[in-house]
């Protein structure tokens, strides 16, 4: 899921990556809405709020929302920066760093929220900022390694693209194109996963409160471990088979 980059990725790679990350993004967004009354993966909404607060002259809120948007931007920037400057030979490790950082951010929010949160406004703003940074990391990672095919917190664009692609398949020449059908499958998978994640978070956050971020972190860890097993276990098995084959050839 993580180790393959850009054009070497198959539809299956993109669907797996898209579904799992969209699921976690949906969970984070709904959990933060319930706990903090703020979205953390709806940057379009934050831009609208920024414009509204500027118009009303509420300068404190203007600066806060500006910093939130900036942190999402910083997360995406940092994600892609690591990927493009990292080693191509160690793609799994390079691509894991943003996910590891995201898990760290989610765990910080979970632990702080469960044990130390006094519900002051400053704490809320910092925790929301941390979540926006983590969503930026995730969106930057998925967009970068999939060559902008997969963007899991950008549902406005996804819905637009889905509508465009569905309208395209009303014409025979587009309906016959496998890449358009594949893209539709991918987008429907991402939208469905995001919604599923949101529904689950909406159901459990009232009960579990901040511990919901631990479950989200476990889901992200699953992504890392799945790819770890596919990368390093597969490679070691391949090497063993290659060595055996070479040995049998020499004996022959």
């Amino acid at each position: 899921m993580l180790r393959k980059y850009s054009n070497t990725r198959s539809l299956s790679d993109n669907i797996k990556l898209g579904m799992l990350t969209a699921f976690t993004a949906g969970m984070v967004n709904v959990a933060s809405l319930i706990l903090f009354f703020s979205f953390t993966s709806n940057v379009t909404g934050h831009y609208a709020i920024l414009a509204e607060e500027i118009a009303k002259g509420k300068w404190f809120q203007v600066v806060i929302v500006f910093l939130w948007i900036f942190l999402f931007f910083a997360g995406s920037f940092f994600s892609n920066y690591i990927i493009i400057h990292g080693s191509k030979k160690k793609a799994y490790l390079t691509h894991s760093i943003p996910l590891i950082l995201e898990i760290v951010c989610l765990m910080i929010v979970g632990v702080y929220g469960q044990f130390f949160y006094k519900e002051t406004l400053m704490e809320t703003e910092i925790l929301v900022a941390l979540l926006l940074f983590s969503m930026g990391l995730q969106n930057g990672l998925t967009a970068s390694i999939s060559n902008f095919v997969v963007k899991t917190t950008h549902l406005t664009g996804l819905t637009t693209d889905l509508a465009v692609h569905l309208s395209m398949i009303t014409m025979k020449k587009y309906r016959e194109k496998q890449e358009i059908r594949d893209k539709i499958k991918l987008m429907v998978s991402i939208a469905g996963s995001y919604l599923t994640g949101g529904i689950i978070a909406g159901s459990i956050t009232y009960l579990f409160q901040f511990t919901v971020f631990y479950y989200i972190s476990i889901a992200m860890l699953f992504i890392l471990l799945y790819d770890f097993s596919k990368t390093y276990v597969d490679i070691s098995l391949y090497r063993r088979r290659k060595t055996k084959h070479q040995q049998s050839e020499m004996e022959a």
């Binding site: 903090f36 009354f37 703020s38 709020i49 607060e53 404190f60 809120q61 806060i64 929302v65 519900e119 002051t120 406004l121 809320t124 703003e125």
Partner: peptide
């Protein structure tokens, strides 16, 4: 009392 969100919700 608590302020939530960006300071726009009073709980």
């Amino acid at each position: 009392w608590r302020l939530k969100g960006r300071g726009h919700i009073l709980k």
